[in-house]
Amino acid sequence: MRNCSIAVQRYLPHEHAEPFWQHFTVPFDESTSILDALNYIKEELDPSLSFRWSCRMAICGSCGVMVNGIPKLGCKDFLRNYLPRNYLASESTAAVSAAEIRIQPLAHFTVERDLIVDMNEFLVHLEAVKPYLITDAGADETPLEKHAQTLAQTNKQTPAQLAKYKQFANCINCGLCYSACPQFGLNPEFVGPAAIALAQRYNLDSRDQGKAARMPVLNGHNGVWSCTFVGFCSDVCPKHVDPAAAVNQGKVESAKSMLIQMFTGRG
């Protein structure tokens, strides 16, 4: 086991007015993740360090943090990535020569404590895009028994129709893309990458008829047009959802729906 220096940005709301840095030395090997390091700190060095985590396998989306200024999932990012190659294998017993790894809470969110941010700021945007199947029949509000006949069967959906939206359905709501998005940093009202990707996921679903209900949010001032295609959101996405693509496909849709509105006077 070799040692590694880690600095964590702390914030204790009732004890300190400002965030501060705390430095730790953590043993690690080939498989030690940032999350493992944080758990080591909590269990061995300072029990007051707070952060969210659960699944350890990059699917629950809890453990997003900034590592050296880049949004990462703590469980899917490894200390080995930040140290010189062969550092683990080298015979040298010199203490931590490599630079310190800096861990901070996700950027652009309100920080509640240590590495915990206010995720509701993201969830309100998610809820705003009506992220559920909307069907003309209005069956979405009626219970199972009423539509027993039709509900006994599934909709048809070919693999090609599934492939159109599948990628955008893989979002784990970790919020890394919001921390990567300078537009969200400048304007917290911006609906943002993950929520727009989800809107696009349902808009592209062959079973859905809710596009008209979702477009007003996407067309609005804080919708797709707030995006300037920086593209970093897609770069940091741990599930390759490519939210930047979703947002900009949304621009095409938005332009179409605005043109239609202009000529027909209807949405």
Binding site: Y132, L133, L151, T154, N155, K156, P159, L162, Y165
Partner: peptide, 22 residues
């Protein structure tokens, strides 16, 4: 079966056969 169908009608992206069936 009825419950899995209900999930489908709520939008669950079940993997499909070429003919569109689950």
């Amino acid at each position: 079966h009825a419950e899995l169908v209900q999930m489908e009608r709520w939008g669950c992206p079940w993997s499909r056969q070429a003919n569109g069936d689950v």
